[in-house]
Write a protein that binds this DNA or RNA. Structure first.
Length: 518
DNA sequence: GTGATCAACCCCC
DNA sequence: GTCTGACGGATTCGG
DNA sequence: CCGAATCCGTCAGACGGGGGTTGATCAC
């Protein structure tokens, strides 16, 4: 029987070093200590997850529970924690918040302070030990003395990394072969790297490149097995009930067994794609699905086929998978695509995608396999970014490796009509350590006032911000918010009165929602 | 008791 | 989702 | 030819936006 304290001790050692190999050694040593029925749970905890997944425990509930007394000696076992968490996850309905907090407090009262701290971070989803599933895969390979490639391959198709660890440690290397692409069992979708433009994409991928429109909806993976159809999200949640029209569509396809990769997105009656936030009113919804279905129909566009009939196509090249896709799905459900080695043709294709209201295009190597769960170099996304010179209005203190630095910027633009600065969003992205250092000093020199987390400053600093979109905002005063904002550079060369104002901000918003030129 | 509002949480990008 | 930093294996450089 | 420097892919962790659902609380 393994105590939670063993895991807590391991996590602490893992966190204390930045060397990945040392982390792997510590994790592997811990894995070898587990008994068979503890492996799935222990692997989850040491990868910053619980077997129960997310179940409604956040910072607020934990704050109540953490008021508990603590035990002086470790006594909780791994299996008991798992049992208690399963019970807590099952508490629902009226009064559940306080009953959950009570149950958590009781559990915490039997944990040492170190164990409480670990459980807090685990349940909130911020273990911050510098090791998650990626490092854990290495550790499983090391503990079972199996090549890491085999572990990673099994992990692509397994329900959980813990299941892979169990098979590897209990049954050995050969057992990993039983993890295969299966119908109605979703696999982590392949992700893409970024390219600045079509020229860069062609340079990286070479002659054999296919371009596809990139639509700004939600990724879907569709499985059909006879009469049974399920639709999964990028993180493998089942959203079949939220998009019944797509399920019906797939039920009507002639193929009996098929796995498709694609995008779900809502369109206007005029045939233009809705902004992402409109698509999200449908996607993942549980209530009133039928009512909204009528006014906000969802479409599916497919771009890959991982299985058609008996055989898995994941290891086959893109061109073979496309050939299967074309057999499985009518042409109007396939995302617009173009095979070309011509930069001019590719650019025109990109312009057409943007003119049709889409996000950009993808570039894919025709000879590459489907790398499930990987951010593979054979898929590149090409999106344009807007840029504005905005004013820093305030900044928030950072956490973790940014503790002690002012990190998250409040960004705004002057509204000439009122003379007031209008906040448009926040960002912490794109800042180097040197910039963090510099801006902390500069902000504090301009401080006007502060509260718990935020330091407000005189509107004197101009910063160039890149962003994907402007979204309609229910919370910001101008009714607009930056989407995916990141810092490009500080504009030391610009005075605040030379920065962009709300006039140019509104102009961008209007241009992006306008109908296409005739 | 019932509906409206709010805060916390999760899930898409 | 974007971006930076760190690690470590692979590759290139310099004498 | 070998050790050092550099390159490159992978992983983790900084936290953004808007949606929804659920349960708690407030007003009547």
């Amino acid at each position: 029987m393994t105590l939670l304290a063993v895991i807590v001790e391991t996590s602490s050692k893992v966190a204390s070093t930045s060397a990945r190999l040392a982390k792997v050694r510590e994790l592997a040593a811990c894995l070898r200590q587990f008994e068979a029925d503890e492996i799935v749970i222990g692997v989850a905890y040491l990868s910053g997850e619980t077997p129960q997944g997310k179940f409604g425990i956040g910072y607020s509930v934990l704050k109540i529970a953490s008021a508990a007394a603590s035990a002086s000696e470790p006594a909780l076992s791994v299996l008991e924690i798992d049992q208690r968490l399963t019970e807590i996850a099952s508490i629902r309905g009226g009064g559940s918040t306080s009953r959950r907090a009570d149950a958590l407090r009781e559990l915490f009262s039997r944990a040492t302070e170190a164990e409480q701290h670990f459980l807090m971070r685990l349940l909130i989803g911020e273990l911050r030990q510098g090791a998650l599933a990626g490092v854990m895969a290495d550790a499983i390979a090391a503990a079972a003395d199996i090549p890491v490639d085999k572990v990673r391959r099994a992990a692509m198709y397994a329900k959980s990394l813990g299941a892979v660890a169990h098979a590897a440690l209990v049954e050995g290397e050969n057992a990993l072969a039983s993890f295969q692409l299966e119908l109605l069992s979703p696999v982590a979708p392949m992700l893409a790297q970024t390219a600045a433009d079509v020229g860069e994409a062609l340079e990286q991928l070479g002659e054999d490149t296919v371009f596809e429109w990139k639509m700004d909806g939600a990724r879907i993976q569709v499985h059909k097995s006879g009469d049974s159809v399920h639709i999964y999200t990028r993180s493998l949640n089942d959203v079949t009930a939220a998009v019944p029209e797509i399920a019906e569509l797939v039920k009507g396809l002639p193929a009996r067994e098929v796995i498709l990769d694609g995008e779900a997105i809502a369109f206007t009656a005029a045939g233009r794609p809705h902004p992402f936030q409109i698509t999200m009113r449908r996607f993942g919804r549980k209530l009133d699905v039928e009512k909204l279905r009528a006014e906000l129909p969802m479409r599916a566009y497919f771009f890959d086929c991982l299985r058609l009939g008996e055989e898995s196509l994941a290891d086959r090249p893109t061109r073979d998978r496309y050939e299967a896709l074309a057999r499985a799905v009518p042409a109007d459900l396939i995302i617009p695509r173009l095979v070309t080695a011509s930069e001019d043709e590719a650019s025109a294709f990109y312009d057409a995608a943007l003119a049709a209201g889409h996000e950009g295009i993808m570039a894919k190597a025709l000879s590459a396999p489907y790398e499930a769960g990987n951010r593979g170099a054979s898929w590149l996304k090409i999106k344009r970014a807007h840029t504005l010179d905005l004013i820093v209005l305030a900044a928030e203190w950072g956490h973790g490796r940014r503790t002690g630095k002012l990190s998250n910027l409040h960004l705004g633009a002057l509204d000439p009509a009122t003379g007031e600065y209008v906040m448009l969003g926040k960002t912490f992205k794109g800042l180097t350590d040197a910039m963090l250092e510099w801006q902390t000093k500069e902000f504090l020199a301009r401080e006007t006032h502060r509260d718990d987390w935020t330091v407000y400053i005189r509107p004197e600093l101009v910063v160039e911000i890149a962003f994907s979109d402007l979204q309609a905002s229910p919370r910001y005063p101008g009714g607009l918010a930056l989407r995916l904002a990141r810092v490009k550079r500080y504009r030391d060369d610009k005075r605040p009165d030379e920065a962009d104002t709300m006039v140019s901000v509104r102009k961008i918003f209007e241009a992006q929602s306008a109908a296409p030129a005739a």
